[in-house]
Structure formats: structure tokens, C-alpha cells
Nucleic acid binder design. Structure first.
Length: 278
DNA sequence: AGTGCGACCCGAACGC
DNA sequence: TGCGTTCGGGTCGCAC
């Protein structure tokens, strides 16, 4: 499930193959994957632009082209494949970028949830998604004061708020559970009830979990181990996620699973006690 | 504005 | 074995 570590891992892999390549044409087999602009404009504008750099912002992969930025969101199962132009197109390959060599970059997604957009450079920061993204976890402006301000009126569970990309970007369902475990915070805690110590723990552990996951090349759960799909190793470091009824690595208690904001949520009821209401 | 939830997808896992 | 049902994942849009 691509969260920030998986997105970074994919971007690093792509970088080696696409820098300075020209996109000569694009085939769009599933038009809904194009979020912006309309299909025709997307096709016309992308033609003959060279890829200069690749980076990430939140869970987005951002390619800098001559005139535009090309953005990709992998959602749950978006993947990239490099194929020879003559190779048969797989049924899950939905947007195909022809390059100025024998290869094509194919954007594939079994679930068809992945998205791509082509945004003029001068519009990047004023339109979605950039305009609404919160701070990267490593941003020096991300501190307890920032979170305190964002959380002060929040009464929904902290687990849900960690997934809110407009506050802090890059965290998904897996790492949210892990961050809360390391911080000894119950996933149902109201953000407005968190202490400064809690907030600092959240920041510290977010960086800790994401850095470790990046180092491990992401997490592979429910993997469809397609050859170029990212198969990371962080699953071996998971403390709570997907460990229902297993023993807590710290206290030996049984990990339980509940639903929070419609999401499967795993935690240790002993290590992550609910705050007593005052 | 904040919140809650269905919709978008479809393969895998589950239940019978 | 085969079939039908449920689940999950990130984000958006709509209703309250």
C-alpha cells in the first residue's frame, strides 16, 4: 500500500530510467486515470516534453518536464513497468508513455484507482493537490506547536487525523498504526486531548517509522509480487499492523483490531491505554 | 467548518 | 469443489 516510503522507493527506481528521456506520445486506455486536464489537452501538451527531474510531495510522484509537471498518485496498487514498445499490453496497464528509445513507461493499476495529472508549472502551487497538502514529516516547521494548532478543535480519533494529508502528508493506514504504537497513544484519542509530550512523540516516531521503512524499501503486504513492483521488507518491523490476536512485542498482551473511521486499526490495549477523561 | 460515509475498483480471502 | 459475499486501501464528493 503505497505510503510515503513506498512512493519514495518507486521514485528512486524510476529516476534511473527516465531522466532526460523525451515523452514522444501517450496512449490512454482508461481515461478516468487522467485527473487533469481533459484527455485531449493532456495528450497534446505532454508530447515531446523531456523529463528533467523526479521528486515526491506527499504521496505524489512529481516529474518535472519542460513546461509542465507530470504527477502520479499510486493510491493502493499503482505500479510502473518499463516495456518494449512491441510488447503486448497487459490488461492492467492503463496509461502508456512512449519514450524516445525502444521503451515505454506503463502506468498500471489492478484497482484502477491510480491517478495522473499534467499541471503547468505556474499553477502547481495554487491548485490541487499541492495547494492542500500539509507538511512533509521532515519539514523543520513540523513541531508540537504546529500540530497543537491543527489539532486544537479536532475531536475525531487521532488515527483518522494522522491520515489527513492536509496536516502532515505521507502517512497511510499501516504507518499510522505503527506510529501510534510507538507513541503509546490509543488510536481513538481525541487530538485536542493530546499533551505536548504526545505531540512530540508523534513527530519523532513518524520520522523514525518512515525513515526505517524507506531504508527497508517500503512494506509489502498482500503483495502481487509483479517483477517490477516494489517489494520492501518493512513488514518484518511491524509491531501492530496486521497482527490481530498476536502477542505485543513489548508487553506480551494480545493485539486487537477495531475499525476507526472505516479503517482497520490495530493496537495493543495495554501499551496504548485510553486517556482517562478528566 | 468539521464530520461521516458511500463511491470508486476488483482480486483475495472468507463463509457456506 | 464451487459459488456468493465481504474486505481493503486513499481520496473525493456529498449530506448533515
Amino acid at each position: 500500500m503505497p505510503e510515503k516510503p513506498e512512493v519514495i522507493t518507486v521514485a528512486r527506481k524510476l529516476e534511473k530510467k527516465i531522466i532526460n528521456k523525451k515523452i514522444t506520445d501517450v496512449k490512454i486506455l482508461y481515461p478516468k486515470m487522467i485527473d487533469y486536464p481533459d484527455i485531449q489537452t493532456f495528450k497534446e501538451n505532454i508530447k515531446n516534453q523531456v523529463i528533467h527531474s523526479i521528486t515526491t510531495r506527499g504521496k505524489w510522484i512529481v516529474l518535472q518536464l519542460d513546461r509542465d509537471y507530470l504527477l502520479f498518485h499510486l493510491r493502493m496498487e499503482g505500479k510502473f513497468f518499463f516495456r518494449e514498445k512491441k510488447d503486448e499490453i497487459n490488461k492492467h496497464e492503463h496509461v502508456i508513455f512512449e519514450l524516445d528509445n525502444e521503451e515505454e513507461l506503463r502506468f498500471a493499476d489492478v484497482r484502477k484507482f491510480g491517478r495522473t495529472m499534467l499541471i503547468p508549472k505556474d499553477k502547481l502551487y495554487t491548485m490541487k493537490p499541492y495547494a492542500e497538502l500539509g507538511l512533509e514529516p521532515w519539514d523543520e516547521n513540523l513541531n508540537a506547536l504546529y500540530l497543537k494548532e491543527k489539532y486544537k478543535n479536532k475531536k475525531i480519533p487521532i488515527k483518522t487525523v494522522l491520515l489527513d494529508q492536509s496536516i502532515m502528508t505521507g502517512i497511510g493506514n499501516i504507518y499510522a498504526d505503527e506510529i501510534l504504537f510507538l507513541s503509546n497513544i490509543n488510536p481513538l484519542t481525541k487530538p485536542c486531548d493530546l499533551t505536548d509530550v504526545d505531540l512530540n512523540h508523534i513527530i519523532k516516531n513518524t520520522i523514525k517509522v518512515l525513515d526505517k521503512a524507506i531504508e527497508e524499501g517500503g512494506t509489502t503486504i498482500r503483495s502481487y509480487t509483479s517483477e517490477e513492483g516494489v517489494t520492501g521488507l518493512f513488514q518484518n518491523n511491524l509491531n501492530v499492523h496486521q497482527r490481530e490476536n498476536e502477542k505485543c512485542h513489548v508487553c506480551g498482551n494480545t493485539i486487537i483490531k477495531i475499525r476507526v473511521g472505516g479503517r482497520g486499526t490495530y493496537y495493543c490495549p495495554k501499551c496504548q491505554k485510553e486517556k482517562k477523561s478528566i
